[in-house]
């Protein structure tokens, strides 16, 4: 009966709220997906944080700082939303540290040059936007509301990245080469952010039935590629895929094979920066322990709590 009511609500496009009955599978799927999303926002600050002190101008530095701060905010919105499912933030962070929870593999690639700040904003935030716009319609109320708030903040992220790429692409030959190199390194990992192809994605069945996911990995990926090809052309950069071409019949771009061995290798912990990202998070968390403790003690001693 509960299960039937639940599914009827979903079919009617009504949101499920924290106190509503939900199947365990739905709750667990959401905890896994939302915590992975939250951890991605937080870990995602590291590759960009790497360039804050070396930004080429004060303007660039202020923008990057604000962008990274937004990502911290996104992580917090998502942790809050995830906590409504009955799991604490402390447990979520512990799962990350114990490697029971994952984060997006894209953040396990290093940021080698300033152009990578451009490529990340343009492509990584661009891909995240396509995913997050779709998730605004997710069936779980708190997740949907977090996505709406996040999407409002994201378009600045993508535009600042694209602006960096456009500037470099019309700069010196060396600057243009740097922009092209960043595009070459980030293109394939970015389109793999949407996850395995639909034919290989074992969990998407229930996620679609429960309307947690509203579009499949392949639909979202195609949407991103279709949007991005023209943007690369406008700034005179070349997407590193010789098979990329417009398919009149499908009304979409065709594109080449993705290297799934590399994808799974990075997912399974063997990317260039997996260890570094996790170690840094643990260290920052441990280094902050005394601050959390001091704040609690202070609150206990003062009547202002």
């Amino acid at each position: 009966m509960n299960e039937k009511n639940f599914q009827e609500k979903i079919e009617k496009e009504q949101k499920i709220e924290p106190k509503d009955w939900m199947p365990d599978g739905y709750r667990n799927h959401l905890i896994r997906q939302m915590s992975q999303h939250a951890h991605s926002e937080v870990i995602g600050m590291q590759p960009e944080g790497n360039w804050i002190t070396r930004a080429p101008s004060l303007r660039a530095k202020m923008i990057l700082l604000a962008k990274v701060q937004d990502e911290a905010g996104h992580g917090l919105y998502l942790y809050s939303a995830c906590e409504t499912l009955g799991i604490s933030r402390e447990e979520l962070v512990q799962q990350l540290h114990d490697e029971k929870a994952k984060y997006s593999s894209i953040f396990n690639y290093p940021t080698l040059t300033w152009a990578d700040m451009g490529a990340i904003g343009w492509l990584v935030d661009g891909a995240a936007i396509v995913n997050q716009v779709s998730l605004q319609r997710t069936s779980y109320g708190p997740y949907s509301r977090a996505m709406i708030k996040i999407c409002k903040e994201e378009s600045f992220h993508q535009r600042q990245g694209y602006e960096i790429m456009a500037e470099m692409a019309k700069g010196t030959a060396e600057q243009k080469a740097m922009a092209q190199d960043a595009l070459n390194r980030f293109w394939w990992p970015s389109i793999m952010m949407f996850g395995p192809q639909d034919s290989e994605s074992p969990r998407s069945g229930n996620a679609m039935k429960w309307k947690i996911k509203r579009q499949t990995n392949d639909e979202l990926r195609q949407n991103f590629i279709d949007k991005t090809v023209g943007q690369a052309e406008v700034i005179g950069l070349t997407i590193p895929d010789p098979d990329l071409k417009w398919n009149e019949e499908r009304g979409h771009y065709d594109f080449g094979e993705m290297d799934w061995d590399e994808f799974w290798n990075v997912v399974n912990g063997n990317g260039p920066c997996n260890q570094q990202r996790l170690d840094h998070h643990k260290k920052a968390h441990e280094d902050g322990a005394w601050v959390r403790k001091a704040a609690r003690e202070y609150a206990k001693k003062n009547t202002i709590n």
Binding site: Q69, S80, A81, R89, A146, K149, E153, A295, N305
Partner: peptide, 24 residues
């Protein structure tokens, strides 16, 4: 209502809320 924050006391809660929910 916009969401929630973690904080040890009410002053910190207000400041965290300001930083998280009113950046624009």
């Amino acid at each position: 209502h916009v969401g929630n924050v973690h904080a040890a006391d009410k002053i910190m809660a207000l400041e965290n809320a300001r930083d998280l929910y009113t950046r624009r």
